[in-house]
C-alpha cells in the first residue's frame, strides 16, 4: 500500500481543517468570507495520491465539514468531483511545479464548491432567479474563490512538497521493506 493514508501525519493534517474553519482568522477574510480550506488541502493530496484516494479523501472531508456547519447544504458531491478531477490531473500529467497552476486550480475548485453550495441554498430556499445575481451567494462565491486562489500558491505548494516527501518515504519503505 503506497497511499498517503498510511502516513498518520498526513491524515492528521486533514484533521486540522476543522480547527482552521472554526478559527476563521478575521485578517484572512475578504468581505467577511474566509478561504475554502478544504480545497486548499484536497488539491495537493489529489495531485500526489491519485483519483481514488482523493475521491475518498474528498468524501470524508465533506462529511467532516458538513458536521461542523448548520443547514442541509453539503460539501460531499463537490469535493468528491474535485478529488477525481485533480487526482486524474496528478496521475496523467507531469508533476505540478508552477505555483500559478496551483492558484488557478484552487480558484476553479473553490468556484465549483461555492456554486454547488449556492445552488443547494437557492433550490432549498426557493429564491427567485431575478435575485440570484444580487444575492449574497454571488458575492460569497467571488470573495471565497479569489481568496482561495491567492492563498493557494503559498499554502498548497508547502503541503504539496510535504505530501510528496511523505509519498517518497512510503515508496522507499515499500521498496526496501521494513
Amino acid at each position: 500500500m503506497s497511499n498517503l493514508y498510511n502516513r498518520p501525519i498526513c491524515v492528521a493534517s486533514g484533521l486540522l481543517l476543522p480547527f482552521l474553519f472554526f478559527a476563521n482568522p478575521p485578517w484572512l477574510t475578504l468581505m467577511g468570507v474566509g478561504p475554502c480550506w478544504a480545497v486548499l488541502w484536497l488539491l495537493p493530496w489529489a495531485l500526489v495520491d491519485g483519483p481514488k484516494s482523493a475521491a475518498i479523501a474528498g468524501m470524508l472531508l465533506g462529511c467532516l465539514l458538513d458536521g461542523m456547519t448548520l443547514g442541509d447544504a453539503t460539501y460531499i458531491p463537490s469535493l468528491l468531483c474535485l478529488g477525481l478531477w485533480w487526482g486524474n490531473l496528478g496521475v496523467r500529467r507531469e508533476p505540478f511545479e508552477r505555483r500559478l497552476n496551483l492558484g488557478l486550480l484552487a480558484w476553479l475548485g473553490s468556484c465549483w464548491v461555492g456554486i454547488t453550495l449556492w445552488l443547494q441554498f437557492v433550490l432549498r430556499n426557493h429564491e427567485e432567479p431575478s435575485q440570484w445575481l444580487g444575492s449574497w451567494g454571488f458575492s460569497t462565491v467571488l470573495a471565497q474563490s479569489l481568496l482561495t486562489g491567492l492563498i493557494a500558491p503559498i499554502f498548497c505548494s508547502f503541503i504539496l512538497l510535504f505530501f510528496r516527501k511523505q509519498k517518497a518515504l512510503i515508496l522507499e519503505k515499500n521498496r526496501f521493506g521494513r
Binding site: 474553519f21 472554526f22 476563521n24 468581505m31 468570507v33 474566509g34 443547514g71 470573495a143 471565497q144
Partner: peptide, 9 residues
C-alpha cells in the same frame, strides 16, 4: 469560541 459571521455559514 468561534465566529463565522459571513459566507455560507
Amino acid at each position: 469560541i468561534s465566529r463565522v459571521p459571513g459566507g455560507w455559514w
